[in-house]
């Protein structure tokens, strides 16, 4: 919208490179890799069973035996934080992958078709973004019942629009370029042109946004867990854990504080990785 564009500026982070790759990509990638490993095989790293209650050490402060302390049932907080990776990383992936796929396909078709399809799509976008997303998700979950599956449905209804908007904008630019004309001159079907030729050049912003979106999904999933509308206790999930500890904040802060740190670190991992990915794509161009 600005008539005068800002001079091209390099992000301060881009100055740091490791082996020719943006440092943000490396650091974010390492955090995400570690998170995935913890999510897939939590029992290899968790010192205790996350559900095991030890009535002899209830609300115990962090110590060598329990580095993150224990909660009001005597469960080991560290083990619960580690096991929660399984649910929270699942939320990140499951809540966003469906919308990514649907959004990319719809966005590519709408961007290529233009005209009426584009105006209808524009109205859908307007309508969806005028809904307070969290309120709508809460309302849908309220109706369908608490739980993760219903949360995925609620997120999916809204979220595909954001991917579709990004992709349709890019495809609209790409379809006017020479190579798209060349494809048409060769007699390729529109489907082949869209999905084999245009899309690979148009998908980058959607992939970068996917990273942000997974971080947002964890925030949303843990918020619902905190409110009692997402993952259900006694499941180990960061939002549920923070809710477990909320009444003990003044005396046993560790029950809530450590799961919160896990949320922040994982979220930062996603956004750093996304930044790095965007940086990498820019330099490649």
């Amino acid at each position: 919208m600005r008539a005068i564009e800002a001079p091209p500026q390099r992000s301060w982070r881009s100055r740091f490179k490791v082996a020719g790759l943006p440092a943000t990509l490396i650091v974010g990638g390492l955090v995400l890799f570690a998170s995935l490993v913890l999510a897939v095989v939590p029992s290899l790293f968790a010192p205790y069973d996350p559900a095991a209650m030890d009535y002899n050490s209830i609300l115990a402060a962090p110590s060598l035996a329990h580095p993150f302390g224990t909660d009001s049932f005597g469960r080991d907080v560290l083990s619960r934080v580690i096991h929660a990776y399984t649910i929270d990383m699942q939320i990140a992936v499951f809540a966003t992958t469906g919308p990514l796929i649907v959004g990319v396909i719809v966005g590519a078709l709408v961007g290529y078709a233009g005209g009426l399809a584009e105006s209808i799509f524009g109205r859908i976008v307007d309508a969806v973004i005028s809904f307070p997303q969290l309120v709508l998700v809460i309302a849908i979950v309220a109706v369908l019942g608490p739980g993760l599956t219903n949360m995925y449905i609620a997120v999916g209804v809204i979220d595909w629009v954001f991917f579709a908007r990004l992709v349709s904008g890019e495809v609209k630019v790409q379809k006017r370029l020479d190579y798209a004309d060349a494809g048409r001159a060769m007699g390729y079907t529109p489907m082949r042109i869209i999905f084999r030729h245009l899309l690979p050049n148009a998908i980058t912003p959607a992939i970068v946004y996917w990273m942000t979106d997974m971080a947002l999904a964890i925030l949303l999933g843990s918020s619902l867990g905190y409110l009692g509308l997402g993952a259900q206790p006694p499941a180990a999930e960061w939002g549920v854990q923070i809710a477990d500890g909320k009444n003990f904040m003044a005396t046993a802060w560790w029950i809530s504080v450590f799961p919160g740190i896990a949320i922040v670190v994982t979220g930062l991992g996603f956004s750093l990785f996304g930044d790095g990915l965007a940086e990498l794509m820019r330099t490649k161009k």
Binding site: W12, A215, L219, S222, S223, Y226, L227, G239, I242, K246, M249, A250, W253, S256, V257, G260, I263, V264, G267, L268, S271
Partner: peptide, 29 residues
């Protein structure tokens, strides 16, 4: 510049209920 942007990035990754709980405990309780 880096300190301001870095701390805001952390703020962006914190869930609202977590920030609220911590502020409530520290400044309220």
């Amino acid at each position: 510049d880096n300190a301001i942007r870095g701390s805001f990035q952390v703020g962006l990754s914190m869930p609202v209920f977590y920030v609220g709980l911590i502020l409530l405990t520290v400044f309220g309780a």
